[in-house]
Amino acid sequence: MITWLANPERFVKFARPAAPIAAIITVLTFIIGIPWALVFSPEDFRQGASVRIMYVHVPAAWMAMFVYTIIAVAGFISFVWRHVLADAAIRYAAPMGAIFTALALVTGSLWGQPMWGTWWAWDARLTSVLVLFFLYLGLISLRGAIGNETRAARLVAIAAMVGWINVPIVKFSVDIWNSLHQSASVIRADGPTIHASMLWPLAIMGLAYMAFFAWAMLTALLAEVDVRRVKALDSKTGPASRIRIETNASPGGAFKPGAANG
């Protein structure tokens, strides 16, 4: 699948129809999912209406981890095969992943305040997601600090791969940390199975987040392909050809071939 899509022609052929399909799925699932999750889903018998934060929070946390995995795979492809689309995927996915992570942290905090009685607990999950957020920020600012595009692609790919290896280690270390030093705050045991009446809206919201991410990524990558085509054209014929067309077309300007360059 990935090697098949590595060809930009085939990628465009796939992405042109796939992007609107993802857009339709996004809109439909949000139209169904948001009222279902926020209005019609049952209240929790202990948590009341505040359980509805879950439908925003849990999919965001899924996406936070999913997007980082995508970034790590793209980093591997970008590093080994120096594929420009893989690098573009990291560039566009990193800010989105950071936003999903921030959303998971903020909604988790808003949920934690009424449920646990605190905005923040030094719990294994919270801590490892926070570290994930910093990893995203590191990737984004590393990209911003390097001017040379090829070099930036190599370095960001290295950072993405090392960061991914770190994620399970962080999770593991904070798990042990937490189990040895139990926090005094009431931490929700993640054992209870969710009732189907809550699981369905949650699944639809998860699908909506995923479709939104796919839509945004496909659109961004299609734009990236177009940008690269324009650049390739420029390097063949020179940007002057485009500039001359623009100056000729300007209203009121006298038609003087070559005068704009003189």
Binding site: G138, S141, I146
Partner: peptide, 19 residues
């Protein structure tokens, strides 16, 4: 080779030192 080295090193390395 970057522009803003000092803070960037901390931002890149600190999450890796968490464990």
């Amino acid at each position: 080779g970057g522009k803003a080295s000092g803070v960037l090193v901390a931002l890149l390395a600190t999450p890796l030192t968490a464990p």
